[in-house]
Amino acid sequence: MTTLKTESPFIALSGVSKTYRTGNESLPIFTNLDMTIQGGDFVAVMGPSGSGKSTLLNLLAGIDHADTGDIQIAGQRLDHMGEAARAAWRAHHLGIVFQFYNLLPMLTAAENVELPLLLKPIPASVRRERVAKVLDLVGLGGRGKQNPTRMSGGQQQRVSIARAIVADPSLLLCDEPTGDLDRKSADDVLAMLGYLNRELGKTIVMVTHDPEAANAANRTLHLDKGVFVENEQVAA
């Protein structure tokens, strides 16, 4: 697994504006938003509903476009890429963990984890090895053949994390990863994310409502009405 530590910011948003338009109505989300995150950081983004947390995550994932501004991740300008290039970028550099896991129900846990590897020119035997390794890493060794719909929420989220890291991305985006879990499972998932950040050097941006989840990060950014409202908190 690779670690990506850079001198310049790993993620740099500069003058990013985003407005949603519905008919004649406009809903501004961000106006000239700036943000930097260093490589290897674990950042929690908190804020009330409608503050722009999910939009920020969508922009970082390249699944939404900013109206203006620059979005640079690992030295690449996301806002300059076309759809196909962004898909290729996601396949190589990004892992995503969703609140509701978003696993494909017709596939086994191992097959779900293997999905990102299908996009890479890797022999099947190597794919299977990598899948087994990450399932072991998330504590689901030997459960690969199980259908995720028969797993608990915590287990499904761990499958989702395994899927997010199997292609060895440098950046993990987590959208309320503990939002659907009980406290114990949430703590397990947060411990797992902390491990991935500390031991494997993954840069993690996690959107959350949960202050306890935010405590697992080493920085917290507070968004309100599209702006960072106070100085970030840095974990001791």
Partner: peptide
């Protein structure tokens, strides 16, 4: 449609 969105997020190109 939701699953197709998931595949696209994972890096599957539209084509």
């Amino acid at each position: 449609r939701f699953e197709i969105g998931v595949l696209k997020v994972l890096g599957f190109r539209s084509s």
